[in-house]
Nucleic acid binder design. Structure first.
Ligand code: MN
Ligand code: MN
Ligand code: ZN
Ligand code: ZN
Lengths: 145, 145
DNA sequence: CCCCTAATTGAACATGGTTTTCATTTAGTA
DNA sequence: TACTAAATGAAAACCATGTTCAATTAGGGG
């Protein structure tokens, strides 16, 4: 299980002058110790291990804040729902395992050629992009045989 | 306004042995004559011009079918909602105007280098990808000044 | 260390998009 | 034209997410 920098996350919250509540700590810990994508309901459920009285409302509010300050990336699932994965700073995307939901970040998407070509063909000004790779993680590959 | 091949769409439905109902015809006509993305409610509203008794339920069912047979692409908006745009056969993606919602298709995404690099770094087997460009269409660019 | 207050919280309720149910209608075939 | 499986629509259910508001609490100032 990957463990990302829990203290770093807490510092980020403080740096943006958000209070460090038990509820937020619990959510942070869940995010810091997962190696998959999680949806809000699952995060809430897991967070209750540390903070039993936390409500879904607070989970959503915390996720919003974390996405705002860039500590979290919202992933878009084919069915339209969201899940969340911790995000390193900078421009990254996620590769998601269709078997188990594990999500890993990658960087180095170079779409400039594609973007330039599309822009000149369509007259659009391209402002951003949205990219996700779907695949199968090593564990899920071996399970298959 | 772009007009895509209405008869072709009807043939596709028949080829998959779906019945050609007045409701489905109405939805097809709406899709065939739009130049933007449309959400289900809007499609229903427009379809009532030709088939006043059509219900939202049927619109959703028809959209599902069309997405299944590849005649339609489901677009995912940043807020989590869906809209739909006609899809040419083959591997394409959409470029969406964040101003007015107009959507245009493009092809020729070449992600092989990126995919190979990510696959070898992570051990994942990459099975597919999901790409959308966001930008501003020519009309919306001039409106801005 | 304790106050104070603005920030935060959670239960209940509201919302909006989508799906399910089920009795009725209809397209396409024989 | 008669038949039947497929398709339909109104209503209700569902589910993720947002809003409200009275009660609680984190954390800076005294
Ligand atoms: Mn990128
Ligand atoms: Mn592609
Ligand atoms: Zn996996
Ligand atoms: Zn536009």
């Amino acid at each position: 299980m990957r463990v990302i920098d829990l203290e770093g996350l807490e510092q980020q919250l403080k740096a943006h002058s958000y209070k460090l509540t038990r509820q937020r700590r619990a959510v942070l810990r869940v995010l810091a110790t997962t190696d998959g994508r999680l949806d809000a309901a699952r995060i809430c459920e897991d967070a209750r291990a540390e903070c039993p009285e936390i409500g879904l409302t607070t989970v959503y509010r915390t996720l919003d804040i974390l996405a705002d300050i860039g500590a979290l990336r919202r992933l878009h699932l084919p069915d339209g729902c969201h899940s969340y994965a911790p995000a390193s700073p900078g421009h990254r995307h996620h590769l998601i395992c269709v078997g188990c939901g594990r999500a890993v970040e990658f960087e180095g998407c170079d779409l400039t050629a594609l973007v330039d070509s599309v822009a000149s063909k369509t007259g659009f000004e391209v402002e951003g992009h949205w990219l996700q790779l779907m695949g199968r993680c090593p564990e899920c590959q071996s399970k298959r045989k």
